[in-house]
Amino acid sequence: MALAVADLSCGGTADFQVMLHLRMPRMATAMLAGAALSLAGAQMQSVLRNPLADPHIMGVSSGAALGAAIATMLGGRAGFSGNTLPGISTAGAAFLGALAAAIVILAASKKFKNATTLLIFGVMLGFIVNAIVSILQFSSDAESLKLFYSWTAGSFSNSTWPQILIMAAALAIGFIISYNSRKGLDIILFGDEFAQMAGAGVTGIRLRALLSSCVLTGAVTAFCGPLGFVGIVAPHIARAICRTSAHSTILPASLLTGCIISLAADLLSQLASAPLPTASTMAVVGIPVILYILIKKPAL
């Protein structure tokens, strides 16, 4: 990166092209994706009162994967521009899949008032959707399987500037919705009953948080594939650094920590001679942190 900047200042046009079309989009994507997923994770952890909740666990990312699988395998390769870049139709299908899973979660949140039951429902939803994806994979040809695999591996390298703009817009919308709901997110941590008795509209708070999470997750998953762990870990790091759980602080702080973690994970995955799948790097970095959280707070 430093080398690229140095070359750029010397006026190398080829390097400028590399900067503009490869390095900068990739960095921007990594930062936006990390920020968006962490913001979604922070809200989901609060409304579900579960320290391990994030879009990945709640099945929203799985819904996106199903959308992508349907587009890739049933729709053939029509949706792909070029050989390896996932095209707009795959991305759009992933976005719709994420939305569909989120709508199921929204409906379930009305039925299951208990936060833990809803979380289990989310995990089960993920299992079912993943099983359908596996069935689709089983009955697909080798070529589309390969293409689909490269998408599910999670990557920041395929984004174009228009896609980045869409992600930035989603991040802005998601942040505005959540930040306006910050005092509701605070009080819901103390239980639905307590919040209701204090005069807070619990259903509204939960719906707003899930809607915001959907916008954030849908956009990211559509263009980068399903990415886990950053959404769980970043809010915890934000809480530890800021020494508070107040959402007026934690929402922007999660956004920033997510941004940094994601960028760091992406840089790490580029250190290897052949670039590693970003989702795997995030898992390797993220899971030890999650295990640490589990060991440190056994009561949760």
């Binding site: 306006n180 910050r182 005092k183 509701g184 605070d186 009080i187 103390f190 307590f194 919040a195 204090a198 005069g199 807070a200 107040a246 007026s248």
Partner: peptide, 12 residues
């Protein structure tokens, strides 16, 4: 302060 939900402004 959080418990006084109906008495606080948007920022709590």
């Amino acid at each position: 302060r959080i418990s006084c939900f109906t008495r606080s402004d948007l920022g709590g």
